[in-house]
Simulated assay, not measured.
Amino acid sequence: MDAVVPFGAEERKVRAARRFGRIGLVLTVAWLLAVPAFVVWTGLPAPGFAWSLAALYVAALALHLWRIREHVTSLGRPASVPFVVATSAVALALALVGLASAWSGWFWGLVSGVLLGDIVSGMRARRIALWVVVATGTVLGLGLLITHQRDYGIPLPPWLGPALAAFYVCSMWLVDVERVWWLKAVTDLDYSRRVAAELATARERLRLADDLHDILGHALEVVAFKSELASRLLDVDGERAKAEMEEVQRVARSSLTEVRALVRDARATDLAAELAGARTVLDSAGIELVVRGDPATVTGPARSVLGRVLREAMTNVLRHADPRRCTIEIEVADGAARLRVVNDGVGPGSAGIGGTGLKALGRYLDDHSGRLDAGPGPDGTFHVDAVLPGTAR
């Protein structure tokens, strides 16, 4: 069976990434709480601005927490239009009122920058760039108009406050967007990992189903054929009928051994052994067998792969045709191994011969970098042609 990928370490990495994402959320909120603390430490704003800034700050914090809640339920979803309008108004008002309130009012631009990140998260890159340029230019331009009309009593250039506020707006949105992008990347990778695990499981189930079809389909077909032959010979040739029933027992036990080997992942097929078995079965059925080529020339993985191809071909010969002649050609050239099985006795309307088994065989050859061509011919024959390159896995 295919090796099962150990997901324990990967699961720990995903959990660690999510934990760091939550830590980032906490740090962002901490930064938002640091803004009023800094303003209080540097001096309370003018009385006319204190309540306005407090109300805007509470509204900004509520909008940011609301956006975090949206990301938790649907990470990466663009913000709704009402949220964009409300957040834009609060962010711009907070930056401008902050600049008008005190010389340290530029620090409120940090909150406006975080809110800008809430607005643009989930947008395409061009729209994000447009929003950042417009928001930065608006805060800088209107901030310069406000600070030129204010006297803070401190010898600072009037452009410094608006420039710092614009800088925070231009840069702090990255913190929010980068955190959301990181969390979304981790979530998508985790989802992809789980899908890969499910696909691997489904693929392994399909492989087991194909192998069981290969083992039991061939065995049951041989058992049915030889049992029918033994019943016909019972009154004519008792010794031969007994020999055929002993062969039925051998095939049944061999198939049981293969099923057990399949469970232990120790099953193997061999082209030479399958060719010997095919010769015995076809001789019992009175079908002329012509073999061209030597199975000993096929080596490596191709020996087992083509052995399975021959087994499925013999199953089709017994189940779907009434042949008088079967030809098996084995060829090795330019590092590639080829097996071709052709039988006659195929009636009209037999395009779907061996449909399930041949589809499974085609998938099996694809897995080993090979190619399968099978189908009826115009002269009442059916061919199974498998080619396996030297690079077969």
Rank of each mutant, 00 (worst) to 15 (best):
D2G: 14
P6R: 03
R12Y: 04
K13Y: 06
A16G: 08
R19P: 04
F20M: 14
L25V: 12
V26Y: 10
L27R: 04
W31R: 08
W31F: 12
L33E: 12
P36M: 01
A37F: 10
L44M: 15
A46Y: 08
P47F: 08
G48H: 08
W51S: 15
S52M: 11
A55F: 02
A59H: 02
A60N: 11
A62H: 09
R67Y: 05
R67N: 05
R69G: 13
V72F: 11
V72T: 11
T73D: 09
S74Y: 09
R77Q: 13
A79L: 03
S80Y: 00
V81H: 09
P82M: 09
P82L: 09
A89T: 02
A91N: 03
A100Q: 07
S101G: 13
S104L: 08
W106G: 12
W106Q: 13
W106I: 06
F107H: 10
W108G: 06
G109T: 07
L116K: 02
I119N: 01
V120S: 02
S121A: 15
W131Y: 10
G141H: 05
T147C: 15
D151W: 06
P155I: 03
P162N: 11
L164R: 10
S171R: 05
M172S: 14
R179M: 14
W181A: 15
D188S: 14
D190W: 05
A196I: 01
E204C: 04
R205D: 12
L208Y: 08
A209P: 00
D211Q: 12
D214V: 05
G217L: 14
A219C: 07
L220Y: 09
V222F: 01
K226Y: 12
S227R: 06
D235G: 12
R240T: 12
R240G: 11
A243Y: 07
M245K: 00
T257H: 10
E258L: 14
R264W: 04
R264H: 13
R267F: 07
T269F: 09
D270Y: 00
A273F: 07
E274P: 02
L275S: 03
V281N: 02
G293I: 01
A296T: 14
T297D: 15
R303E: 06
H320M: 07
E331N: 07
V332P: 00
D334W: 02
G335M: 13
A336L: 06
G345Q: 04
V346E: 03
T356F: 06
T356G: 04
T356A: 11
A360D: 15
G362R: 05
D367T: 15
A374V: 03
P378N: 13
G380E: 01
A386V: 01
P389R: 05
A392E: 01
